[in-house]
Design a protein around this nucleic acid. Structure first.
Lengths: 338, 338
DNA sequence: CTGTTAGCGCGTTCAT
DNA sequence: ATGAACGCGCTAACAG
């Protein structure tokens, strides 16, 4: 491996001079600068980031933890985060937790060991609390995405989940629906909780009664196993005329389960959900959704993280950004005759 | 920051003993071992991976470079790579090049600086040659995914693109189609080249003439700009009865462009392509496709990379794995009356 | 403008 | 079974 000492020797200068040329620090005569540059070129020198980071106590490395790498919401978010990080000269490490606390724990350990300069993460859920406390304790700045964690003060970028759910229900009610069910992520995830709250509130607002059995809570993540939804649909009597899905993945699963029993959307059951379905939406925009600004989640979150890192000495107050939710009406809701 | 020296002091031993406890090397009395462990716990010690890597000359870090993070083919591939890496205790860094050579160059630089132990990559194209030569020159093992690069000898995991294209055309011909067009990735990408070759070969095999204008070459990546496809569709007279799309993204773009001019698939134009469309395929399996084992691309590729790293001293011959392509017939091809 | 010294946190080697 | 000295590659601080 070529080191600055190899360069120094061949260029007849000290290692320090080489270091200065590399980092453009201090004053160097144009002559030695070009000489050093030429030798570096000749030897194919590449700075050792490990050594730099060790002495500088800064790695220039950021970490993005998401809960589902196959979900277009998160890949779009990742693009935003990546763009913002690159813009400021930071490298970005991705991790995928599948909403699994053990995987999250593994990544937290890796982050600590790697000495990443900061973390951007969608926490697995409220139970991520100890993980965040670990980060805080070790002085690693972090910004939460899409989900808050009770007991943790931090910067956070959220979507307006409650309002989104309200709009979804309102839209269904306007279509004449009164028996509205919800399939949602776990209550231990703040966004799922907010969506449930918005749903309940909107029911009340419209004088609709709430039935416990009408709400199914499961994981936001992708599974191939539809049995939970199947059992739920079997159990409900009568079937609701409409379903609100807590996210895009659940919407797809719901449609599959409905299809399996010969029910079509929207002819037999109407369906609305949070987040777009990527390519599906482009070919055949079909689902009525609450569209969230996925790219902005990542971009703004990253900016807040970088800001936090740069103002480490004089930290400002925690910031909470709530991105608006937009209802996009398409064809997955049938207007009932009244 | 807590170091082994802090531990050593508090536990009344030498730093070396602490190091031995951490790495389970050498012989340590059970008593001091537990004492050291307890102090580590108390102080919340986390090993500094930077320092370890610097002295060990090994980072335990691998890098995966893909060309489109929003393409389900690549995210599924990423899952496979991640699983295989984690299984062997390696951390995995992701990078997204958008088939852009400059971005690829940036990542190559980052990899060299970071001293990653190996790289798994879908190269942007034939022009990635110098990048790969750089990796080779610096002794960084790499495995190519989905695409070969002429002039580079290496391990590689490919799909059977030529055979896939043949099957696609054959299927169309069986449906009575004789005017078959192709929208494909750039000829500077080996998989696109192979798909084109398979297409041409199948035409010949079926006594169909080839018309230059029937092939459109563009980027495999996602764009919002449909003008290229629009111009192509405008130009062709008559319109083909069927189109082969070189990948899933192009298929979606083609459908959008067709829809924009009031043409429906498959009523007006039939369409087939490479790779699945993620959630779309689950709700409403519509497109007839060549399905590739995306997960296996990543999983096998990673295994080959790890194997290469571990047998560094006595390298075996380059291995080329070709994963079979499977035709999945659905509803996007209309059978023509003859 | 350039060089010397010291140290970032850890593991290898050789003692003890 | 444990410790001291040294070096991994680099840069901050100081000296000249």
């Amino acid at each position: 491996m070529v080191t600055i000492y190899d360069i120094a020797e061949k260029a007849q200068v000290s290692a320090m001079t080489v270091s200065r040329v590399i980092n453009n620090t201090g004053r160097i005569s144009e002559k030695t600068r070009t000489k050093v540059r030429r030798v570096m070129e000749e030897l194919g020198y590449v700075p050792n980031q490990l050594a730099r980071s060790l002495v500088l106590q800064q790695t220039n490395l950021l970490f993005l933890m998401i809960t589902d790498i196959t979900n277009p919401f998160y890949t779009t978010l990742a693009r935003g985060a990546e763009d913002a990080a690159k813009k400021h000269g930071y490298r970005l490490l991705f991790g995928n937790t599948d909403e699994n606390l053990d995987k999250e724990q593994d990544y937290i350990d890796a982050i600590l060991k790697t000495r990443a300069d900061g973390v951007l993460l969608a926490p697995a859920g409220d139970a991520s609390l100890p993980h965040l406390e670990t980060l805080r304790k070790h002085g690693v700045p972090f910004v939460l995405l899409d989900r808050e964690v009770p007991g943790v003060e931090s910067d956070v970028v959220l979507g307006d989940s409650k309002e989104g759910a309200r709009q979804l229900v309102k839209h269904l009610v306007a279509g004449g629906h009164r028996e509205i069910a919800m399939i949602n992520g776990s209550r231990s995830i703040s966004s799922a909780r907010d969506r449930l709250a918005g749903y309940l509130e909107a029911l009340k607002l419209n004088d609709l009664s709430f039935a416990e059995e009408r709400v199914l809570e499961m994981s936001f993540g992708p599974r191939s196993d539809l049995s939970e939804i199947d059992a739920w649909l079997d159990w409900m009597h009568p079937l609701p005329t409409a379903i609100v899905a807590g996210n895009n993945v659940l919407a797809v699963e719901a449609i599959r389960s409905l299809q399996a029993r010969g029910l079509r959307v929207p002819e037999d059951v109407s369906l609305v959900c949070f987040d777009e379905l990527a390519s599906y939406a482009e070919i055949d925009p079909f689902l009525t959704v609450i569209s969230q600004q996925a790219y902005q989640f990542g971009y703004l979150g990253m900016q807040m993280l970088l800001d936090r890192i740069q103002t480490r000495e004089e930290p400002g107050p925690w910031r909470k950004v709530v991105l608006p939710a937009e209802l996009i009406v398409r064809r997955s809701v049938r207007a009932l005759n009244r």
